[in-house]
């Protein structure tokens, strides 16, 4: 039998590399892959998939019990929470300003500014700040975050169809990166990248959040859109070539599987199940091509981190 040739494939383009941090803050590079996830014989991966720990400014009131017990007292302020999160040695932090949500306290620019300042001074990790996902509130709190973090190149999100001009202006004037979020639609993702680009924000200052559901709640949509975005980028479409962020944690911890302790025996132990749920959600999205997964539970973070190390470590040749 003739020698079997391994079916490696050729890719023509590379994902953009986006840098966060600087101005005295630790830096991290995101993206840059020139092949589908972990297929090392087909390209290079200057940066492994990054893990961001999500912290909030609401003393974890919006977190379910399993997460609250994992973080304990650390959640009492963004500052203490950030310090605790840094101990997990993540690549970056995500601060979600959830208290600005009309249902969750409706706080404003002043509170946002204070929370961001606390986190910036508590740890030197690169930072992404996410608003409450209500566009007009996002504009208010993100503008405040942008100002206090000027020159430290943080990520600002969500930058969506309704507010992209405002967020792009902040990013351009203060040197930040836009987290461009679109609702589970590859064409909308592409379009928002182009709109931001047209306003003068370079692709190197955009990270795409194409949205996803958690395992069992629409994960397949997020999985496939991320996979298609990544393949499109590698095949040479520059408007798809932004690195991708996926909120595996937030989506996971919404659901009954991570919240309900009185469940049928076939669901198993709540804590184990919930950690498994977040782990599999995040790991699946990484396999699709996510460059940053944002996660909440320390144990799930540890598990996904170890798996990434194994995937990027040396492999014996076939």
């Amino acid at each position: 039998m003739a020698k079997l040739e391994l079916p490696t494939e050729k890719w023509t383009a590379r994902v953009k590399e986006v840098k966060l941090g600087g101005g005295g803050r630790r830096t991290v590079a995101i993206g840059g892959a020139s092949a589908p996830p972990f297929l090392k014989p087909e390209g290079s991966f200057p940066n492994p998939p990054r893990i961001a720990v999500e912290i909030r400014d609401d003393r974890a009131l919006s977190f379910p019990q399993v997460l609250r017990s994992a973080w304990g007292d650390a959640v009492k302020s963004p500052e203490t929470w950030a310090r605790q999160a840094a101990k997990l040695n993540p690549d970056l932090l995500v601060l979600r300003l959830i208290s600005a949500h009309p249902d969750r306290g409706n706080t404003g620019a002043a509170e946002a500014k204070a929370a961001v300042e606390q986190v910036l001074s508590a740890v030197d990790l690169p930072l992404i700040v996410i608003g409450p996902e209500v566009p007009e509130k996002d504009n208010e709190v993100l503008a405040a975050a942008s100002e206090v973090a000027r020159g430290q190149r943080i990520g600002l999100g969500n930058c969506v169809a309704e507010n992209y001009r405002t967020i792009a202006a902040c990013c351009i004037s203060d040197g930040h990166v836009a987290i461009a979020k679109t609702p589970l639609d590859i064409n909308l993702a592409k379009q928002l990248n182009s709109l931001l680009n047209d306003l003068g924000l370079p692709l190197e200052s955009i990270i795409a959040d194409p949205d996803t559901g958690a395992l069992g709640y629409g994960l397949e949509y997020g999985y496939t859109i991320i996979e298609r975005l990544r393949l499109g980028a590698l095949m040479g479409d520059p408007a798809l070539a932004t690195p991708i962020i996926a909120h595996a944690g937030m989506e996971t911890w919404r659901h009954k599987e991570t919240r309900v302790s009185e469940a049928p025996p076939s669901w198993g132990d709540l804590k184990e199940r919930a950690i498994g749920w977040e782990t599999l959600t995040a790991f699946t999205l990484i396999q699709a091509g996510a460059d940053i997964v944002v996660m909440c539970h320390p144990r799930a973070i540890e598990l996904v981190k170890a798996s990434i190390s194994k995937l990027i470590g040396d492999s014996s040749s076939n």
Binding site: E257, S266, W267, G268, D269, R273, G276, L280, L303, S307
Partner: peptide
């Protein structure tokens, strides 16, 4: 837990028959 992660990869990436050594409902359900 590591077995669950590997099994997850096998579900996504191309295994057709997955043999688990641990039967834990909390990890089998996901």
């Amino acid at each position: 837990e590591e077995e669950m992660i590997l099994a997850g990869q096998h579900i996504i990436k191309y295994s057709s028959l997955i043999v688990l050594d641990n039967f834990l409902p909390s990890l089998v359900y996901p």
